[in-house]
Amino acid sequence: MPNPITRPLLRWAGRLRFPRLALLTAALFVADLLVPDVIPFVDEILLGLGTLLLANLKQPSSGDR
């Protein structure tokens, strides 16, 4: 069952492309390392962003067809 707090963020992040999605994931990861548990549900958000990042890497770009 999706978390109602993280769902809107992951839906928004799903529309981002590789460079910005990677930057967002890295920034959130570094923030979590420096100040643990400052953002609620940050672990779930990072897992979702990592999944989106890997899915974007696997999909071919529209120009490759």
Rank of each mutant, 00 (worst) to 15 (best):
D64M: 06
F41N: 11
P36D: 10
N3D: 15
A55C: 06
G14Y: 03
N56Q: 15
L46H: 04
P60I: 14
F18N: 03
N56H: 14
Q59Y: 02
P2T: 14
L16H: 01
R7K: 12
D37C: 10
L28A: 09
P40V: 04
I45G: 01
T51N: 05
R17G: 05
D43I: 13
G14R: 04
T25H: 15
D37H: 15
V42M: 07
L10D: 02
A13Q: 08
F41Y: 15
M1I: 06
D37A: 14
P60Y: 12
V38L: 13
D32F: 00
L9Q: 06
A31V: 09
P19D: 03
L10N: 03
L28S: 05
W12T: 02
R65K: 04
S61E: 13
F29N: 06
R65D: 02
L9S: 08
N56R: 15
F18T: 10
T6G: 03
P19S: 04
F29R: 13
L53D: 08
V35D: 00
V42Y: 00
L21F: 05
R15K: 11
G63L: 10
L57Y: 12
E44W: 03
M1S: 12
P4H: 09
L57P: 01
R11T: 11
G63K: 09
R65E: 00
A13D: 10
N3C: 14
L57N: 04
P36M: 13
